[in-house]
Design a protein around this nucleic acid. Structure first.
Lengths: 258, 258
DNA sequence: TTTGACCTTGACGCGACGTCAACGTGTCTA
DNA sequence: TAGACACGTTGACGTCGCGTCAAGGTCAAA
């Protein structure tokens, strides 16, 4: 047989056969006078065996190891390992499909974003365009909703629920307005400390504890942990210096309260 | 934020972030005076969203399309399509695991080869070393056992069962010996036609029909079908001219009988 | 003789990055 | 002030299992 016949017989391309030669998986057969490879029956048996195993999902390198010398001993281990690997893959795909189903339900309800229904509810209660600080909160909440695992998120949403009550909402919007008023103020403006105290009063105890536990800038001591990064500076980049000072004071107050 | 902070926050490598810029998935942020990229909160939101979707199995290209302009309309379709794709993958892996389990059972029983137990039984009944023709049969049967689907194989094995009875076996071995005797004979040796007839008599009717239907050299007319290849020549390469002639005559007789 | 089907080797391309090179920048320490 | 060290920049190559094209050589049929 020439290479095309062998390939057609086993059902692969000639490129595949030559590639297997290149890898040393299939021995190079004798050549005819014109340089063509001349295959025999046993080559097609070897090739068919390679394909049989490859189609089960074995990598060609694993194949070479398994078929190398002792065909029986190693092969069984490799196949068992492969089965475990395939089982893992099935589970992983199942988990992905679960998350996908969750996401699809969210997309159905809120096509414009990718947050859960509850989080979308919270976001809708934030002041719309115009408030730069509300925009920062919006981004923070969206980030959390994409990154945090569902359990943590649900806990957080439960704590935020009271803030969406009509009167709490009105006070919240007033606080946002006062924050926005500080856009051009100096960090030592007298309104800064007052606003921070009012914000602290607005935040329920349980939520304060959660913020202290999770916001790096509020944890004890100076920035000694690499994980902490530079949260405060990052936020400062998003808002004015006076507004950043409000945030810093607020976190200090919450930490003292905890 | 600089690129390392962004990457650590979202849990990817800096290379990944730059790759997403390269693909246009994530917009390039402003640069500092020193050329460093300067990221803001919204960049981390965008990056987290990309990762969230990518981890579900969407390709980056699909992601770019889905997140391009209309986030809601397209995304749902893409996600549904992805779910179908994942379901297909799960099924494919399941099928692979089924075949793997079959193969494992075979390997347990017959560690030296990769054939089913029944086929191993047939192979064991063939004359051992020394008979070149039996070696050819051995390779042909092994090839069939690797390539044919299990149903066809089972049918074939059932037809071969009578040939492994003690007396049929003895006659079969005698026929192999007579074939091997023709190794150095001329194609017009008088033993050729006799042996072909004896072989034909040794093959049960039903099996003859199966061979005529499946062996290209036995089908009607000259080689007119590309699929037929050059079976006869291939076999001739494995055995002597006289032996090849026996095979040719045998197939002709079987065809006439059908 | 020319076509057309086959063979040869060699090289590039894919997808989603990892990894290394060669270099500039910023911060901390001796 | 110098050096160490961590970080940033762009660019290029490697991964895996081949597909695909390039530029030729070989062979049977029209």
């Amino acid at each position: 047989m020439r290479i095309g016949e062998l390939a057609a017989l086993v059902g692969v391309s000639t490129r595949t056969v030559r590639y297997y030669h290149h890898l040393g998986l299939l021995p190079e057969p004798a050549r005819l006078a014109n340089g063509y490879r001349e295959y025999r029956l046993r080559d097609s048996v070897a090739l068919a065996r390679i394909r049989h195993l490859a189609e089960l999902g074995l990598s060609l390198e694993e194949l070479r190891d398994a078929l190398a010398d002792d065909e029986g001993r190693d092969l069984r281990e490799v196949l068992l390992e492969l089965d475990a690997e395939l089982a893992r893959q099935q589970e992983a795909i199942g988990a992905r499909r679960d998350r996908l189903a969750t996401l699809l339900a969210e997309v159905d309800l809120h096509p414009d974003s990718m947050v859960t229904g509850d989080m979308a509810e919270v976001l809708r209660h934030l002041p719309a365009e115009g408030s730069t600080f509300a925009q920062v909160d919006r981004e923070l909440l969206t980030l959390v909703s994409v990154m945090a695992d569902p359990a943590d998120q649900a806990r957080m949403l439960k704590l935020m629920r009271p803030l969406t009550e009509p009167d709490a909402l009105a006070r919240g919007h007033a606080l946002y307005a006062r924050l926005d008023d500080l856009a051009d103020a100096e960090p030592d403006d007298h309104r800064v400390a007052v606003l921070a105290a009012d914000l602290a009063a607005h935040i329920p105890d349980e939520m304060a504890r959660l913020m202290v536990a999770n916001v790096p800038a509020a944890r004890s001591g100076p920035v000694d942990n690499a994980d902490d990064g530079r949260w405060l500076e990052v936020l400062s980049g998003e808002v004015s210096p006076a507004q950043a000072e409000v945030f810093r004071l607020l976190m200090t107050m919450l930490k003292e309260r905890a």
